[in-house]
Design a protein around this nucleic acid. Structure first.
Lengths: 344, 344
DNA sequence: CTGAAAGCGCTTACAG
DNA sequence: CTGAAAGCGCTTACAG
C-alpha cells in the first residue's frame, strides 16, 4: 500500500485549520459543529479527495461497518442480482458485506444469524424473501436489537423497515396492456400459494379484467408453483380448452417460458396465435425465444435502498420509528418483448 | 461490538507464554520460529479459538487483505455462483472481496483495473472469462506487479496461475455415455467460435466417436453461439434431416434447452425419441422439463482454488514460479438427468 | 461548539 | 530464533 499517496484525517484537519476531532465529527454527521466550520471541512475533504480508512475506523469505533445479507431464495439470478447491487452500494458507503445462506434446517439458520451478530458483529442485516418471513429469525434479531431491513416481506410488516415493489399494480398494468392489445380471453397461471406476491399478482390480474368489464371463466385460472414444470402442465390444460385463451399471464418468467414451450408443442405460434407474458424479468425471459414480455423487478434499486436504510442509522432504535416510514415501494417497469402482441 | 468477548493476540501470547511478536510470526507463517514454540502457540490459538482482527491487521500491515474479482461474463448464474464461492473462501481466509464488472469499453475496464490497484489496493485479482484473455488487462496487471489468477483462460497460459476444468475430457465422457446408451447417430451443436472451450468440447466429442469407430456425417455438426436462439435454429436443422440423429450433444445448457424445445415443436419425445445433453449445469438445466443431462462445471471449487492461490502468496513474485505450477485442473462431473436415455 | 490524549489490535522495523 | 517499542488512521471518552 502506498501510504504516502493516501490523504488522512490529519491532512484534512491541517488543510482546514481545525483538529482531527472536528473533521471526524463532520464526517460522521453526529457531532455538533458550527455551520461555518462544517463548510470549511467539507471543502477540504472535497479538495483533498479524502476517503476515510475503513479499517482504522472499524478498529477504533464500536461499529463494525459490516452488513449481513441473509438469503435462502432458490432463484440464483434473483440472489446474484441483489448481491451485486448491495456489494456496490456497500462499497460506496464504506461498508463490507457478509453473505450467508440460510439453511433448510431452522436451527442451523438461527446459528448463522447468531454468528453474524456475535462473531462478525454486523451493524445490520438484510433479509431476502422467504427467510425474511421466518418468525424465529425475526425474533432473534429483534431480541438482539440488531437493525434489519427486509425485502418484499409478507408478514409482520410493522416490525422493521422493508423494501418492495407493487406486485398488485404491476400485474394490473401488464394485464391491462394485454387488454389494450385487443385480448379478451386472458388466462392466468397463479404463483406458489405460500408466496404473498402470488396472491397480489392474481388480484391485480382480476381487477384489471373487472375494471375493463371482462369476465374470466374459471377454467382460465390455473394454480402453478413458480416452476417450469408446473407452468408446463398448467399451460397444457389452458391450451387444450375448447375456448382457448388468446393470451396467458404467468405469475413468473419460468412459467411463462413453459407456456411458450407448451404452445410450441401444440403448434400454436407465439405471439401470432398466443401472447404470453411473465413476471420478474429474470435472465430466462431474454434467454428463451421469443423473448418474454414481463415485469421488471427493480432488484438493484431494492438492494441500494436496503443498504441505504441500514447505513443511514435511522432505524437503529426501532421503537422510535413511525410505522409510516417503514414501507419503501420501488418502481417496476413493464417490458414489452416478442412473446406478446396485438390480437389479430 | 462486545470487545470483552474477543480474544486478542495479546491473550494468545499470555496463554502460551511468548511475546505477541512470536504469535504473529506463527500466524503469518513467514518468520523463523522454533518448532516447539510454534506448537505451543498453535495450541493456544486453538484453545482460545483466536481469530485475528482483519481491520487491525490491515491497518498495521502493508497488505490490504482485499482481493479483486473482475468479470464480464454475460451468464449471471456463472458469475453469481463464482461470486458466492469466492466470498465464502475469502471470508475463511480473512480477506474481503471487491467485485467489479469490466466494461465493453476497454478504456473503462482498464480504468477499473487501475482503481482496484491504486485506490482499493487489492493484494491480488481474479479474472473470469472472457476478461481473463484481454491482453491489455493482463499487461496492466503484469506491469503493476499485482498477482492475479485466471479462470479458464484461453491464451498466454504461461503468464499467470489459472484454474480450469478439462473441457475436452468432459465432452469425451458425456459423448461416450451417449454411445454406451446405444446411440450412434449423435449430432453436436458447437459453442461460440471465439471461446476456447467450444473447440475443446467439439474435439472431445469427435474423439469419443472416433475411438468407438463411429463416423459423423458433416450435416450432424451445427455451429451455435451459446444462445438459446442459435441452439433453436441449429436443432431445427438437425431434426429435419432425413437421417435424424437419435441424440444431440449441445455445447452448453442454453442450446440443449433449445434443442428440447425444437423437439417438442416437431412432436419428438425427449428422451424416448431423442436424447439431449448439455454442458455447464447452469440453473437452466434443472429448470426446463425434462431436466437436462449435462456436465457440471466445478464453479465453487474453482473459486476456492483461485482464492487459495492468491492468499497463499506463492505467486507474489511471478518470475520465480515454474510453469508447471501454473495450471490447476479441477474435476467435473457428468450429471445424468431425464433428457437422455437408452436408445430403443 | 472544539480539542489533546489514549487506545483499538495488529505489524513493521530494529535489537539482541 | 525471540522481544520491546513505535505506529497504522481513526474514534471514544474526557475536558474546556
Amino acid at each position: 500500500m502506498n501510504k504516502e499517496l493516501k490523504t488522512r484525517l490529519q491532512d484534512v484537519a491541517k488543510h482546514s485549520g481545525v483538529s482531527m476531532m472536528t473533521v471526524s465529527r463532520v464526517l460522521n454527521k453526529n457531532g455538533m459543529v458550527s455551520d461555518k466550520t462544517r463548510a470549511k471541512v467539507q471543502v477540504a475533504v472535497k479538495e483533498l479527495n479524502y476517503r476515510p480508512n475503513v479499517s482504522a475506523r472499524r478498529l477504533a469505533s464500536s461499529k463494525s461497518f459490516f452488513l449481513g445479507l441473509l438469503y435462502d431464495n432458490p432463484s440464483t439470478s434473483y440472489v446474484s442480482q441483489f448481491l451485486l447491487g448491495s456489494l456496490k452500494f456497500c462499497r460506496a458507503s464504506g461498508y463490507h458485506l457478509v453473505v450467508d445462506e440460510a439453511d433448510n434446517d431452522l436451527a442451523k439458520t438461527l446459528k448463522s444469524v447468531k454468528e453474524l451478530i456475535n462473531i462478525t458483529q454486523v451493524d445490520g442485516l438484510i433479509l431476502l424473501p422467504p427467510v425474511c418471513d421466518i418468525p424465529e429469525v425475526l425474533d432473534t434479531l429483534t431480541t438482539a436489537n440488531i437493525p434489519f431491513v427486509r425485502v418484499s416481506p409478507n408478514s409482520q410488516l410493522h416490525i422493521s423497515p422493508y423494501v418492495c415493489m407493487d406486485d398488485y399494480q404491476a400485474a394490473f398494468e401488464i394485464t391491462e396492456q394485454l387488454i389494450n392489445q385487443g385480448h379478451i380471453n386472458i388466462a392466468h397461471i397463479i404463483g406458489h400459494p405460500d408466496v404473498g406476491a402470488s396472491r397480489l399478482r392474481y388480484q391485480g390480474f382480476l381487477d384489471a379484467l373487472r375494471s375493463n368489464k371482462i369476465s374470466v371463466p374459471p377454467e382460465y385460472i390455473e394454480q402453478g408453483y413458480f416452476t417450469y414444470k408446473s407452468g408446463l402442465s398448467a399451460a397444457q390444460k389452458l391450451l387444450s380448452l375448447e375456448n382457448r385463451p388468446s393470451a396467458i399471464f404467468a405469475s413468473n418468467d419460468d412459467m411463462a417460458a413453459a407456456s411458450i414451450s407448451a404452445a410450441h408443442m401444440n403448434n400454436i405460434q407465439v405471439p401470432s396465435a398466443l401472447s404470453v407474458v411473465g413476471f420478474d424479468d429474470t435472465s430466462l425471459a431474454s434467454t428463451v425465444w421469443p423473448h418474454i414480455s414481463t415485469v421488471r423487478q427493480p432488484i438493484q434499486e431494492m438492494a441500494k435502498m436496503a443498504v441505504e436504510l441500514l447505513v443511514s442509522g435511522k432505524f437503529d432504535d426501532p421503537t422510535s420509528t413511525k410505522k409510516s416510514d417503514l414501507r419503501h415501494v420501488l418502481d417496476f417497469e413493464i417490458i414489452q418483448r416478442e412473446s406478446s402482441a396485438e390480437l389479430r
